[in-house]
Write a protein that binds this DNA or RNA. Structure first.
Length: 291
DNA sequence: CACTTGACCTGTCCGC
DNA sequence: TGCGGACAGGTCAAGT
């Protein structure tokens, strides 16, 4: 699912593929794709040129030369796929691929650029959204004011991480790092992976995790996120990058989706349990709950 | 304020 | 084969 590494991968793809292009046409078949946005979206988008692609937490920001920006959240099943040249070989043809089959029934919004290339916003479960807001107002919206620091920022210190996590003293450590106001960008996959790497049981209460362990946890969060970016993200089911291609991180995952398999450290069988209402993967031997 | 739960959606899988 | 229900997980509103 799109977490920080996936959104970062899409960002890099869109930066290469769409900056400098001018929007010539916008169509959308579902009003909730643009919640809380002026109804005449098209009026604000037509003839606008893409100037820059940014990311904050799991939110993509497409800056336009009109002093407006598009904020996009992919939530669980969102995709942003750019198609430069439409080639239709037909389903089943060896040259056919995802991008040649768009739009499909999950397509919610289509942007056509003046060079006739397209950007498709697909979202099977319709949780994702796009918002059009003045670029200058982005820092003032609720989300941006509340969201925590970027974990890969060099400025984000262990001291600040520990201070922020400790605000959630009585909840589980997994719930704490999933909280986007504590730090930005960690979702279910990287929570499980970083907690395993730090040898912390996800259900451990924050107050029972030592500073030393939290210090290790932040290092592992950074390492896991960076590795995933290097691998183009995780494609569990739906995720693809801006070119419609899957990421390969899950081939390197040590616990996520590995229930029933042997722990790489101790050969104990990996278990799937429920923590913070989420499916959670743990090695019961490497990750002990501290009472 | 801290914390948890339910709602938002659709596709897939499992058991009967 | 069909059908109901559980499940998948990011975020926010509403609940305790």
């Amino acid at each position: 699912m799109p977490e920080l590494p996936e959104v970062e991968t899409v960002k890099r793809g869109l930066a290469n593929l769409t900056v400098g292009k001018t929007i010539a046409e916008v169509s959308h078949d579902w009003d909730k794709s643009f919640p809380n946005t002026k109804t005449d979206v098209k009026h604000f988008l037509l003839q606008a040129k893409v100037t820059e692609i940014k990311r904050r937490a799991k939110v993509l920001i497409i800056e336009l030369d009109t002093k407006y920006s598009l904020l996009i959240h992919l939530k669980m099943t969102g995709q942003l796929v750019y198609v430069g040249e439409v080639k239709r070989f037909g389903a089943g043809h060896p040259n056919d691929s995802l991008i040649n089959q768009l739009p499909d029934k999950s397509t919610r919004v289509v942007f056509r650029f003046s060079d006739n290339s397209h950007l498709f916003f697909n979202d099977q479960r319709k949780f994702g959204w796009i918002r059009l807001i003045p670029t200058a107002e982005i820092p003032n919206i609720d989300f941006m004011r509340k969201v925590g620091p970027e974990p890969l920022s060099a400025k984000f210190t262990s001291k600040e991480f520990i201070q922020r996590v400790r605000r959630r003293a009585n909840t589980t450590i997994k719930a704490a790092i999933l909280d986007q106001t504590v730090l930005a960008g960690v979702g279910n996959i990287y929570a499980d992976e970083s907690l395993f790497a730090a040898k912390i049981h996800p259900a451990t209460r924050v107050k029972n995790v030592s500073d030393r362990k939290l210090n290790t946890l932040l290092k592992e969060i950074k390492a896991v996120l960076q590795l995933s970016i290097d691998k183009g993200g995780s494609s569990d089911k739906n995720y693809v990058n801006a070119e419609g291609k899957k990421g390969s991180y899950l081939g390197f995952a040590k616990v996520f989706r590995r229930e029933g398999q042997a722990c790489i450290n101790c050969s104990t069988t990996i278990e799937k349990i429920r923590v913070a209402t989420r499916g959670t993967h743990v090695c019961p031997k490497c990750q002990k709950i501290v009472q």
